[in-house]
Design a protein around this nucleic acid. Sequence first.
DNA 1: TAGAACGATGTAACCGGTTTCAGGAAAGCG
DNA 2: CGCTTTCCTGAAACCGGTTACATCGTTCTA
Lengths: 334, 334
Amino acid sequence: MATIREVSRLAGVSIATVSRVLNGASTVAHPTRERVLAAIATLGFKPNAFARGLATNRSGGIGVTVNEISSPYFGAFIRGVEQVVRAEGIHMMVSSGYATAALERASVDFLLERRCDGLIVQSDALDDEALIELARDGDTPVVVFGRSVAEIGSSCVVLDNELGGSLATEHLLRHGHRHIGHIAGPLSYADARDRLMGYRRALVAAGIAFDDRYVVESTFLEEGGAEAAAHLLERAPDLTAIFVANDQMAAGAMRTLRETGHAVPDDISIIGYDDVFLARYLTPTLTTVRQPLVEMGRAAADLLLERLDGERREVVHRFDPELVERQSVASAVR
Amino acid sequence: MATIREVSRLAGVSIATVSRVLNGASTVAHPTRERVLAAIATLGFKPNAFARGLATNRSGGIGVTVNEISSPYFGAFIRGVEQVVRAEGIHMMVSSGYATAALERASVDFLLERRCDGLIVQSDALDDEALIELARDGDTPVVVFGRSVAEIGSSCVVLDNELGGSLATEHLLRHGHRHIGHIAGPLSYADARDRLMGYRRALVAAGIAFDDRYVVESTFLEEGGAEAAAHLLERAPDLTAIFVANDQMAAGAMRTLRETGHAVPDDISIIGYDDVFLARYLTPTLTTVRQPLVEMGRAAADLLLERLDGERREVVHRFDPELVERQSVASAVR
DNA sequence: TAGAACGATGTAACCGGTTTCAGGAAAGCG
DNA sequence: CGCTTTCCTGAAACCGGTTACATCGTTCTA
């Protein structure tokens, strides 16, 4: 692999001049520049990113941690980030934390060690203090995705999950349902707590007492949704609708209902959350609450870039979810 | 951010000794080691990856290029790679090429510039020559995923797509179908060509002449599958079964069939390919051909690691697809 | 025409690690 | 007790870029 010195020798200039050509910074006379470019081409020279990083203390890349890289949910988010970042010629390193505090810590440390110029952190397991410390103390700008931490609010990009929970529940109320169950995600996740909160708020606003027999905590996974639905049917046999805290669990719940002879939506209505890809393929297609994940990914990247280059951009910090009506909700008959 | 010199000063040793402690290589007296570790801890020292990379010319990471990072298909593959690599304490950088030659080239160059220790390339747009040159000429070991290039066969991890095409077609033949359509992927992709080849071979082996009116080339996307199915119904109205070259197009085809009043599988049987996540959620659930993507990702990583550390491992280069029977295929009635 | 200003280029210090080689102290040997 | 061997440690050269500063030849201004 050729170095800048070999290029300089071939072009008959000093290494400083080659460096100047590479970075386009200072003025280089036209013929000289041409000679250097020719030498670069013939040698197939590629600047060594380590040497450059060592000298500038910048990597030209940002780091992103997500729960799980292979999930369609995070895929959409990553895609949004990549759209913005690629357009600026910046690179992205992704690391999965699998919702485990130790692994998430390791991911963050790993990315910091690589001297990422900035970090977008989607974390389920780290506590607020850890995030605050990260965002405040480090010299690396940090944007937090999907969690609202008051102390560093201006670094957060979030969805209003409580609003989403209300939207879903109100939709069921509008269809005349009064006995509405809720399959929640793990309540250790703020997302799950907020959705539950929205559900509760909507019920109370409609004059219906909150009853925790109608609520089951589960896993955000399909299997968990299937089991939770079975519990719910047992504990609250009179329910006519269920708000499920994500689409994956909704798919599982629908399977259980089908297997136990409950028609969806004729006997029981189902509403999901996320509007992942899958929602359109279930039978019946799933009414759900959409998160604009790609847009949110873009917003997170924009926010980080703003921190990096100091240029102000229009950044939305809080996104509103949106109801997507499909076939899995019908009017209550009883 | 503390440097190795500050650590050495605090511990009262030289930077060489600190370096030795960091790498565990040479012998360091026990009390000295303790002092150094204590200094590292109090300063919160993290070695600078650039400086280390510059000195060793290794990054401690591998690069992976895929078509599209946010697709569930590639997600599964990446996950397999990550499983292996994480266990070895190696890091992974992913870059998307979006099936565009220029972007794929840029991804590869980008990763090479970062001095990845090795590369796993999943490429749809680069031609064989480019891959051969990459695998042969560079000093960075390269593994090619999902394409069989004869000249560098020992560096490839592939699925036998022709076998997969045969499996699917034979399954339909066994159910008594004689008029079998095929919705192919873009024939610029080797995958798509091989699946078509398998379809053709199975037909001929069953004594049925290959008829290209029964074949439509499409896009590997849902919308393409929907359109292709419409064409196919027009050109070959007597068909009783369709082998679709991936599940996404199969979902589209099923939509068209439903909309045009053809029952699946009673009027027309459908078989897909890939066994992505989605296949289990379609109605009827989709009979398909499974690619063991996670395992293949692991194999690709194992192969690369073998190149990197010279240690021999058991590596499978060619995987066999597997039929997954669900509900979308029925016996031919006519 | 002398002196200042400017544009193009080169020299060398620096970024923060790794690693070779040399040297000093302690231990082993005759 | 002197000499070799072994073990541990330090000095300094590197890795390949960036960049502050120096230099030199031109051109512009008075």
